Each structure stands twice: as C-alpha cells, then as structure tokens.
Computed example of a mutant assay.
Amino acid sequence: MSIEAHSNTATLSSLQRYLATDIERRTRDHEVDISTAIKGLSLFRRNTPTEPCPCLVEPSIVLVAGGAKQLLVGDQVYAYNADHFLITSLNHPASSQILQASPEHPCLGLVLKLNVSIMTELMAQIQLHPPREREPEESAVIGSVSSGFLQPFYRLLCLLDEPNAIEVMAPLIEREIHFRLLQSDIAPRLLQIITAGSQSQRISRAIDWLKAHYNEPLRVEDLAAHVQMSSSSLHHYFRKLTAKSPLQYQKWLRLNEAKRLMVNQNYEAAQAAYTVGYESPSQFSREYSRLFGASPKRDVQNMRQSATKTVS
C-alpha cells in the first residue's frame, strides 16, 4: 500500500470512528429514529438485529456508522454498512432490516433527505451530463464510502452542538454533500435520476400525483397521460421501481392514511374507509387485514395497548 493510500485509509477509518462515537452519544437513551434541529436530518440506533420492517422510503441518503442494514424493495436487496451508503430516489413502500447490531456494538447511522433541486443546480454548474448508455433504472443504489464523502457529514453532525450556526451553515454543508455524491462512484446513476424526462422522473411525478389524489378513483390511462407515458410503460416502470402497480400503491397509501386517522384522530373504521376513498367498508376491512395482519379494530387496539406499555 502506498503512503497516500495508507493516509486515505487512516483518514477514512478515523472519520468512521468519529461518526459512530458522535451518533452513539446523541442516541444513547433511544432506540428509535430521532429527528434533529437540522431539517431533513435524522439519526437512528438499534441494539439488536430485526426482521424486515415495513417502511415508507423517501428520497434520502442513508449512512451507517456501525453495524449493517439492508433495504428490500420487491425482490431487490440492498445491503450496506460503514463502508457503503444507500441512496433512495423515490417515495415508496419497502422493508428495512437490521443485520448486525448488539447493545455493545449497536447499529448506528443517519438519514439525510436527498435534494434533487440542489443536484440539478450542481449538475449545470459543473457541466455534468448523463451517460449515453443508460443503466437499468432502480429506485435505490449502493455507493462506496470515502473520506471526502464522510467529512461534510461529520461537520453537519457537529453543527448540532452549535444551534445558532445551523441556519447559515447547514445549507452550505448539505450542498457540499450533494456535490460529493456527484463525484462518487454512483454519479452516473444519480445523473440519470435528476435528468428531466428519465423514467425515474416520470414515475416520481406519478407517485406525487397519487399521494395528492389517493382518495380519488384511479384510471391508469389518465395517470399515464399525466406523466407522458403509455399505460404499459407506466405499469412496467412503476412496478420495476416500486415493486407495486399504481393501483397497489394507491391502495397502500389509502390503508396507511386510514390507519393514521383511526389511531391519531379516533375515526371509526367505516368513517376512515370512506374518507380515504373506499366505497365498501367490508372491502376496506379485508384489504386492511391482509396488509397489517389484523382487522382495523384489533390493529388499533394492539397499537394503543403497546403505546400504553411503553409509556408505563
């Protein structure tokens, strides 16, 4: 190993330790995802491995400082650890799993929301162009960690100890992070994501429309026309990127919103069903049970009982 390579390795190793120590300190009394004073930045800690847990994936950068995780999107598996980071480019349901963690060596990390607008500006500023040969599009990608990539993340964490500096400094550091992404080994994939007219962009627009109109009747032909795709192409790429059809995705949105209404606003099951767009409460109950493993009433009762035990 050359002297330069050894120096880079030592720097990377040191940064990984600094990040792990800092996140461990900030999450010591928690085993959940923790929001921070920096908008779009959250921290996580898990002390034990887990089974795959359903989650809503947002466009984000996920960095692990200790332990290992994986994201499952349909049949696709994205495993990452302290040497690899995860980028997700769409809002869609998936499953997250902790692979390596213990009380002595917890799984620690952070999530920073991906800002496509910043990357678009940077792409124009440094005159980057998408590759001519298009790679298969996916909704997530794994990149390799480097010391240059980790340095701004560490400075972003340190800002949490300087609350008066966050408003001025955080946007600058986040811009650098996005610049480092465009210099990383996954830059070609990112350039595809942010290029107007790509399939990822069109599916992202379709998802945005579904989120805004989830409680309305859905005609796939109308959605395809809205994003300037054929119905067959929309269905193909939507399933490829999210592991669901547009109709399945709409159903997932409806059922999760109904669950939120019942838990947080005390809606009855039938009231929640009609509010999110179902015409038949019995159909709502069947589909809810298939997704969550229990009837609406039983599921809400279980959640409230679990919350009561946690508080006590």
Rank of each mutant, 00 (worst) to 15 (best):
T9W: 12
T9F: 12
T9E: 15
A10S: 14
A10Y: 01
A10Q: 15
T11M: 13
T11I: 06
L12E: 11
L12K: 15
S13Q: 15
S14M: 12
S14F: 11
L15Y: 10
L15R: 11
L15H: 08
L15G: 09
Q16G: 07
R17H: 13
Y18S: 14
Y18C: 13
A20Q: 10
T21H: 07
T21Q: 14
T21D: 14
T21W: 01
D22Q: 13
D22R: 14
I23D: 02
E24V: 02
R25S: 10
R25E: 11
R25Q: 12
R26H: 04
R26K: 12
T27M: 07
R28T: 08
H30Q: 06
H30A: 04
E31H: 02
E31G: 05
E31Y: 00
V32C: 06
D33C: 03
D33W: 00
D33E: 07
D33S: 07
I34N: 01
T36Q: 04
T36A: 07
A37R: 09
A37I: 02
A37K: 07
K39S: 09
G40K: 05
L41D: 02
S42Y: 02
S42T: 02
S42Q: 03
L43P: 02
L43W: 01
L43G: 02
F44R: 06
F44D: 03
R45I: 01
R46L: 09
T48W: 10
T48F: 13
P49F: 10
P49N: 09
T50Q: 11
E51K: 15
E51H: 10
E51W: 05
P52D: 12
P52Q: 13
P52C: 09
C53R: 12
P54D: 07
L56S: 07
V57P: 01
I61P: 01
I61S: 02
L63A: 00
L63E: 12
L63Q: 13
V64I: 12
A65W: 01
A65E: 04
G66W: 01
A68N: 06
A68T: 02
A68L: 05
A68F: 04
K69W: 08
K69I: 00
Q70L: 09
Q70N: 14
L71A: 08
L71N: 08
L72M: 13
G74Y: 06
D75G: 09
Q76D: 12
Y78K: 04
Y80G: 06
N81Q: 08
N81D: 15
N81S: 13
A82R: 15
A82P: 08
H84W: 03
F85H: 11
F85G: 11
L86R: 08
T88V: 04
T88Y: 04
T88L: 08
H92F: 12
H92I: 05
P93M: 10
S95R: 14
S95V: 02
S95I: 00
S96Y: 05
S96I: 09
Q97H: 01
I98A: 05
L99W: 06
L99N: 09
Q100G: 00
Q100K: 14
Q100H: 11
A101G: 08
A101K: 03
